[in-house]
Amino acid sequence: MSDEQFFSYLEANMDRIITEEGELILDAGECEQLALTNCRIKYAVVEQDEHEHNLRQILNLGHTAGRALEALSGYQLLHGEAIAVGLVIQARLGAKYGYMTEEEADRVAALLKKAGLPTEIPDYITNRALLDKMYTDKKVRSGRIRFVFQDGIGAMKRFADGSYSVPVEESEVMELLEELRAIR
């Protein structure tokens, strides 16, 4: 999500990784390339912020809602599946704030779907329960839910105070959750 070239590569080549029916292709060269690229991206972040002072927050993209979904599902949603839904939530919320366009948010959701990952909140998890569980996220400060956002595709949003996460009003999160359920 923080590397536009890699994101575009995945959009163009997902069919070399997984079939439309959701079966993994497991091409050794392709898997090696994906793993190396992901490790390179994460390593660069960790190397710059070894002790989690600020930049490493970007590795929590999608995790505010994702971890809450994972726990509320009783771990029926695997970590990656829950984070995929969390990524859609942050992208849609980010579009509302103008950090990315609706088209970019659509691209995020489409890529995750193409990868065979869920992109919708399970029906058995209520918006209220999800919102309440987000308050247990490690980025919560002074009783306020914080999100990490993309700055379009290929960049991470850095805020005026230098932080990579920002508080979001509960009412705005709830409004988005209700909208996401309505457009199913």
Rank of each mutant, 00 (worst) to 15 (best):
S2H: 12
S2F: 08
S2D: 09
D3M: 06
Q5M: 12
Q5H: 12
F7Q: 04
F7Y: 10
E11Y: 11
M14P: 00
M14Q: 08
M14H: 13
M14K: 08
M14I: 14
D15N: 12
R16K: 15
I18T: 04
E21C: 00
L24P: 12
L24A: 13
G29N: 14
C31T: 11
C31Q: 11
E32C: 15
Q33V: 07
L34E: 02
L34C: 07
L36A: 13
T37I: 04
C39V: 15
K42V: 12
Y43G: 10
A44L: 13
V45M: 10
E47L: 09
Q48G: 10
H51L: 14
H51E: 12
H53C: 11
H53A: 11
N54D: 13
R56L: 02
Q57I: 04
Q57V: 05
I58Q: 03
L61D: 01
G62H: 03
T64C: 04
G66Y: 00
A68D: 06
A68I: 00
L69P: 01
L69H: 02
E70G: 12
A71W: 06
A71L: 09
A71H: 03
S73A: 05
G74K: 07
Y75M: 08
Q76T: 08
Q76Y: 11
G80L: 02
I83F: 04
I83K: 02
I83C: 01
V85F: 03
G86K: 05
G86M: 02
G86Y: 05
L87E: 09
V88D: 01
R92D: 06
A95T: 08
A95E: 07
A95L: 02
A95C: 08
A95K: 04
K96P: 03
Y97F: 14
Y97P: 01
E102C: 09
E103S: 13
E103C: 08
E104F: 04
E104Y: 07
A105D: 05
D106Y: 03
L112D: 03
K113D: 06
K113G: 01
K114S: 10
A115N: 00
L117G: 02
L117N: 03
L117W: 01
P118L: 01
P118D: 06
P118F: 00
P122M: 08
P122T: 05
P122L: 07
Y124K: 14
Y124P: 00
I125K: 11
I125F: 01
T126H: 09
T126Y: 06
N127G: 13
R128L: 08
R128H: 15
A129D: 13
A129Y: 00
L130I: 04
L131K: 11
L131M: 10
K133H: 12
M134Y: 06
M134T: 15
T136D: 14
T136V: 07
D137L: 08
K138L: 09
R141G: 05
R141K: 15
R141H: 08
G143N: 15
I145L: 05
F147Y: 13
G152N: 14
I153S: 06
G154Q: 05
A155M: 08
M156L: 05
K157C: 07
R158C: 13
D161C: 15
D161V: 14
G162H: 11
S163K: 15
Y164V: 06
V168C: 05
V168I: 14
E169H: 10
E169N: 14
E169A: 14
S171Y: 13
V173R: 04
V173W: 01
M174T: 07
E175N: 13
E175T: 13
E178I: 10
L180Y: 06
R181G: 12
R181K: 14
I183E: 15
